[in-house]
Amino acid sequence: MAMWLFLGSECLLFGGLISTYMLYRGRHSAELGPDQIFDIPFTSVSSFVLLMSSLTMVLAVSAAAQKDDRRTNLWLTITALLGATFVGGQVYEFTVMYREGLGFTTSLFSSSFYTLTGFHGVHVTVGIIMLMALVGINKRSRVPGDKAEVVEMVGLYWHFVDVVWIIIFTLVYLIPA
């Protein structure tokens, strides 16, 4: 329940960041706007990766519920790897954009874009840390309390981060400015 409350609260956080971006997405110089800078095919691949990590997360939760430690760890590890791929993709994307001249302070568009996606990236990173911690803890079977429940909590968080990306992908990338 605490996790659900926290996620409800996070809706307002990302809502604020997305709204800020929506407000400012048109405020940039002529050649460095969203339509020029985004690489849609690349981003859709990394979106797909994140989506698939949700699937592996579900399988991890499912395995944990059946007290199958080995499969739980396997799926958790794969989820973390997919998440890391996504973050890696984001870092690559940022680097490319930066080379093209879009720094954090270049325009209102760039500031709000980096803030929004950066916040999301940090959330994914925190999720990866939690996943790895879970794997490490599981190996030494030191989870206090109910293991499956803990995995489920992390799972909820992970899906939420994915869901936020579903929204960001559509509103930020796909809808033309």
Partner: peptide, 24 residues
């Protein structure tokens, strides 16, 4: 109650920020 908690946050966010953008 979980759906209720989560969606109340979500719907509140959508309504508030839609109104917010509308004022702009």
């Amino acid at each position: 109650i979980f759906s209720w908690l989560f969606y109340s946050g979500l719907i509140l966010a959508v309504l508030v920020y839609a109104a917010f953008l509308a004022t702009f």
